[in-house]
Design a protein around this nucleic acid. Structure first.
Length: 277
DNA sequence: AAGCCTACCTGTTGGC
DNA sequence: TGCCAACAGGTAGGCT
């Protein structure tokens, strides 16, 4: 589920709930997430203050006094603020109890498929950006330093289909399966086009489309296909406004031609053969 | 280095 | 109604 907009929405909610607060307790369920959170790291958390909550790509970074919690929502995760006495579900696998002012709350990472992760990076090990999970990430789509020429330079390294290049977080982060199809539709580009062969003008158009798509999704609280909810438990609404994603056989909202489906890199792609050339 | 494939999991859905 | 296969928002890691 969670692509950049969902992580951004989560990030803003977690920041509101936790910034300046103090961790009182931290625990994990008996089921592992993608990587184990070292018990020694877990034991370090109580007593630490929340100094910042940021996003890098699809990773959520919770900066504490002596290090950073790196959180990934995987395919089915959501990170919600609850009352401390609210009952947990069998899919809650990481729990953070905190106080912020006089408020006591509990954050829970709910992740049925457990492709998500929580890992600890100590300040003593250097800047969190140097963590192995983060160090090779590509540019942020909203980075002002990402212009059409830079985007084209990145895409030039890939002869593969633009849909696959767009989803490769080593080039530009945050664009997953839904938003790749949506951005390509908005840019009028066929998803099978070779990334390396896009003209500068088309790169400019695509970059603009990526930004517009992600921004619209953020503004609508993300997409909720099955189970994504923001940190406040609210569902996103972007899925109601998609042009092509999961609309195979239905009419293109612009020209009426039936939306087509194909598989690229074992993932579903949707496009309009008339609007996208 | 690009590009392709597998693996990690479980809940939901669609076809019979 | 029930069963089962196919499928689902991500991405590290291994191989060619």
């Amino acid at each position: 589920m969670p692509e950049l907009p969902e992580v951004e929405v989560t990030c803003r909610g977690v920041e509101k709930a936790l910034l300046g607060g103090r961790i009182e307790a931290a625990r994990v369920s008996d089921k592992p997430l993608r990587w184990p959170l070292a018990p020694e790291a877990l034991a370090l958390l109580p007593g630490q203050h929340v100094r910042g909550v940021r996003r890098r790509g699809k990773y959520l970074l919770i900066q504490l006094d002596t290090g950073t919690l790196i959180v990934h929502l995987g395919m089915s995760g959501s990170f919600r603020v609850h009352a401390p006495d609210a009952e947990a579900t069998p899919w809650d696998h990481f729990f953070l109890t905190a106080t912020q002012g006089r408020r006591r709350l509990e954050l829970r990472l709910c992740d049925p498929r457990r492709f998500g992760a929580v890992v600890w990076h100590a300040n003593a090990d250097g800047p969190v950006g140097q963590h192995p999970l983060l160090v090779r990430l590509g540019m942020e789509p909203f980075d002002p330093g990402l212009d059409a020429a830079t985007f084209q330079r990145l895409l030039r390294t890939r002869r593969a289909a633009i849909k696959l290049a767009l989803m490769d977080g080593h080039l530009v982060v945050g664009v997953g399966n839904i938003y790749a199809s949506e951005a390509l539709f908005r840019a009028g580009i066929r998803p099978t086009t070779s990334a390396a062969r896009l003209s500068l003008a088309r790169c400019a158009k695509l970059l603009e489309a990526v930004r517009a798509t992600l921004q619209d999704a953020i503004d609508r609280g993300g997409s909720t296909l099955r189970n994504f909810v923001g940190s406040d438990g609210m569902a996103g609404h972007f899925q109601h406004t998609v042009y092509v994603y999961d609309r195979a056989g239905q009419s293109c909202r612009v020209c009426g031609t039936p939306v087509r489906h194909l598989v690229q890199g074992q993932r579903s792609t949707y496009y309009c053969a008339c609007c996208q050339r």
